[in-house]
Design a protein around this nucleic acid. Structure first.
Lengths: 126, 126
DNA sequence: ACTGATTTGTACGTATGTATC
DNA sequence: CGATACATACGTACAAATCAG
């Protein structure tokens, strides 16, 4: 049943009824409106957050996320790229949530780390 | 406080005290052992799952995940690769959890989708 | 600088549904 | 079929952050 609320919110976001920057109703009011417990509403919001659709700030609320422009990253000869979840430290440094995926571009001992949802990889078309 | 249990379990996994394939104690027994509510234990396990350290099967339990071999994927001229969370349908097809990141390799209308934690991208070294 | 209202974060407890073995 | 274990859902309480006045 809680997937239904997820679907409702997801389609409101994708249809534009909720625009980037808009705040969702508070957890308490969503709970009341849809006849759910707050814990269930929180589970729904956690799903949307994992999907990158919203961000949550304690004491403030949950807002629709601006879908980021993807920066084009060129992969050069000898470089390798992997995706993995951010550690807590990386999350702080990159200002993303813990566990959100990052792209690690690696050459030898050198590595560059990017939030995965803000990059697009291409090859050096030299 | 629930981060403490996360740290305990994480280090048991990384030290090898819990090997890949081993089952964690059940949520109920972890709750009792550490004096937490089961909901809190579940939150901890959700974190470990997001980090890719464990997988959970309903009715069976949570086990330490075999860290997957990464298949090397070669990015060719004109191809672009992005990472994003799996949709529910993709999650079913790829046998991963909903929201877990996938790598989408794209050329024109053609696209290939891989679980992000099982691939490593390189360029076509010609 | 402080207060109060709002909102999310964490934590507790309980009950029932459902999959696995 | 029964035992075990996770999934979902309810409810409550208090802590902590944000913001408006």
């Amino acid at each position: 049943m809680y997937r239904q609320l997820a679907d409702v919110l997801r389609s409101k976001i994708k249809s534009g009824e909720l625009s980037p920057g808009d705040r969702l109703p508070s957890e308490a009011s969503l709970a009341q409106e849809y006849g759910l417990a707050r814990a269930s509403v929180r589970a729904v919001i956690a799903v949307l957050r994992a999907e990158g659709l919203v961000t949550t700030e304690r004491g403030f609320g949950t807002k629709v996320r601006q879908q980021p422009e993807r920066e084009v990253i060129t992969l050069r000869a000898g470089e390798r790229a992997i995706a993995r979840p951010a550690t807590e430290e990386e999350a702080r440094q990159l200002d993303i949530d813990h566990g959100v995926p990052v792209i690690v571009v690696n050459q030898g001992t050198d590595e560059r780390i990017y939030p995965a949802d803000r990059v697009e990889l291409t090859i050096d078309a030299g």
